[in-house]
Design a protein around this nucleic acid. Structure first.
Length: 556
RNA sequence: AGGGGUGUCGCCAAGCGGUAAGGCAACGGGUUUUGAUCCCGUCAUUCGUAGGUUCAAAUCCUGCCACCCCUGCCA
């Protein structure tokens, strides 16, 4: 009903289809509930695509809700960044943004209801004692001495907690469930704690804040969520999710369903670790193009489509999984191959003098912006001196090398065929310039007899512009940095190489920020959304082109 | 050692009792003014493992093994 019949449905879709068929639900309501304590990363993208995607496909709604129950960790600036990321990924939430803090009043009333029913009590055990009393995996917990205190007393104490009469940690509200439960989450979990802490939305109205397990299920129910999707580590919390909703006066009971989080090779997706990278200055902020954050990937040049495509391809299951970088790379390449304009940029320029080309002549040539798609053409300039990449010339080479070789010819992409006649070096042996002759009769056609084996890119020395190009590579050298004892030691020292002397063709003179291109024969690049301006061009490499030459070369 | 989960190709992932989809990667070959793209071909007699049920099992049953998560007044 939501997909083409040949596309397999993951288990959550199967559950939803079942619920719709059985009449359990007549609509689908999901939510994406981030805590505003950091930037969203690629793992969140999976959850976003799932929740918003399901709502879209079933013509339901998906809410954006900030899970802001811990004012000690949360900040408004994170909330803003999250909103922007969700939008950028291409999703629109249902109505206004929700906040768990919008429900603090109702949550408080529900907490009192539990107390009145004898299902919650105010505990005065210290945090250390609570831990002690909780027991272990093998040993059952024991009841708090305050567990059986009169309902009236708990009610009064809870109100006094709210009134600010007690210090942090002196008391807390606990659900009265079962201290001997094999599920530790059910051993009288704390549902409210005292925190004399300013909240970024409710200010100083509260000094008691509800815990996640109490808040989340009620927030879901209040919003009429039908399917509450979360990651695997919450499986053990589901009995508590259900217990709370079963014991308060609320007529909605969403179903919590767990799926496995995304792990991407060579990245970390732990807010704590990402925060560490930022705080310790290993990267240039949360949106550094090397970061697996949504904003970092955006700045790097990934498209929302490519990220969504990856989420689509990896599927939804309950298996612990690690996706290879190749999948993501394939997704951007596929998108950008089809949609990015082609342009010529020389990253490591070496001068080529075309000896038989008229000294002051400048020819305007027309180059297609895309080899297949109809994306128009642009003007490129041909002159006596051009730059090519150092890697595209060798004084001698075997037959496998298809670029410029002394005495041999090569095609300048979108221009003439040239033949290398001489090379000028300094005393150290560095190549200063390469002398070539061009064949004027090779524009748009091959020379008589033979066809040049290679094609290389180039720019006119006089009609090109300087640019800074940032070459990014994986941030970590090991596939699973998150499992490493010392994260920092696995950082890739070559994750960023800044090239200051690149030369770009004239069409890039007034490029808008955040425009994506294929630099022919090099890779996909994006003009930096903050640093790129006319007169100071800056491009970030998103990903290289697939490089089968590298394989041949490495084999020897 | 208690509870909760998961085991299908190098990485993802379909499959839901009728005899192993697909994607990525890899490897061959073709086209090409990007060593890109595109195209064509190869890539699990086997589904963690050992038994059992059945005419028939990746799918049902039993035992075993491996891995992940859980003892915050974090989410």
């Amino acid at each position: 009903m939501s997909d083409t019949p040949d596309k397999p449905k993951h288990f959550i879709r199967q559950i939803i289809d079942g619920d719709l068929e059985s009449g359990k639900h007549s609509r689908v309501g999901t939510r994406f509930p981030p805590e505003p304590n950091g930037f969203l990363h690629v793992g969140h993208a999976k959850a976003i695509c799932l929740n918003f995607g399901l709502a879209q496909d079933y013509q339901g709604q998906c809410n954006l809700r900030f899970d802001d129950t811990n004012p000690a960790k949360e900040e408004e600036r994170y909330a803003k960044a999250i909103e922007e990321d969700v939008h950028w990924l291409g999703f629109e939430w249902n109505g206004d943004i929700r906040h768990a803090s919008d429900y603090f009043d109702q949550l408080y009333v529900f907490a009192k209801e539990l107390i009145e029913k004898g299902l919650a009590y105010v505990d005065e055990l210290s945090p250390e004692d609570i831990r002690e009393y909780r027991g272990t995996f093998e040993v059952p917990g024991k009841n708090s001495p305050y567990r059986e205190r009169p309902i009236k007393e708990s009610l009064e104490l809870f109100e006094r907690m709210k009134a600010g009469e007690f210090e942090d940690g002196k008391m807390c509200l606990r659900a009265k469930i079962n201290m001997a439960s094999p599920n530790i989450n059910m051993r009288d979990p704390v549902i409210y704690r005292i925190k004399h802490q300013h909240h970024h939305r409710t200010g100083d109205k509260w000094c008691i804040y509800p815990m996640y397990d109490f808040t989340h299920c009620i927030s879901d129910a209040l919003e009429g969520i039908t399917h509450s999707l979360c990651t695997l580590e919450f499986e053990d919390h589901r009995p508590l999710y259900d217990w709370v909703l079963d014991n308060i006066s609320i007529d909605c009971h969403p179903q919590q369903i767990e799926f496995s989080r995304l792990n991407l090779e060579h990245t970390v997706t732990s807010k704590r670790k990402l925060n560490q990278l930022v705080a310790d200055g290993h990267v240039d902020g949360w949106d550094d193009p090397r970061m697996p954050t949504i904003s970092g990937m955006r700045r790097r040049g990934f498209t929302p489509e490519s990220i969504r495509d990856m989420c689509d391809r990896i599927g939804i299951t309950k298996k612990v999984n690690t996706t290879e970088m190749g999948v993501l790379e394939n997704c951007v390449r596929e998108d950008l191959d089809k949609n990015a304009q082609r342009v010529m940029v020389v990253l490591d320029p070496v001068k080529v003098v075309i000896t038989n080309y008229p000294d002051d002549k400048v020819e305007e040539l027309t180059a297609p912006n895309h080899p297949k798609e109809d994306m128009g053409t642009r003007t490129i300039y041909m002159s006596k001196e051009v730059f090519i990449d150092r890697a595209d010339f060798r004084e001698e080479a075997n037959k496998k090398y298809k670029r410029l070789v002394l005495g041999k010819s090569v095609r300048l992409r979108n221009s003439y065929v040239i033949t290398a006649t001489d090379v000028v070096k300094n005393e150290k042996g560095d190549i200063l310039e390469i002398h070539c002759e061009y064949d004027p009769d090779t524009l748009g056609k091959n020379p008589e007899g033979q066809k040049p084996k290679g094609v290389i890119h180039w720019v006119s020395s006089s009609h090109s512009l300087p640019a800074t190009v940032r070459l990014y590579d994986r941030l970590f050298n090991v596939p699973n940095p998150g499992s490493e004892e010392n994260l920092v030691s696995t950082l890739n020292p070559e994750s960023l190489k800044v090239i200051d002397g690149a030369r770009v063709e004239m069409s890039l003179k007034t490029v808008a920020p955040e425009t994506r291109f294929q630099f022919e024969r090099e890779g996909y690049f994006c003009s930096d959304r903050y640093d790129c301006k006319e007169g100071s061009l800056v491009f970030n490499r998103t990903v290289t082109l697939r490089d089968s030459w590298a394989k041949i070369e490495n084999k020897g």
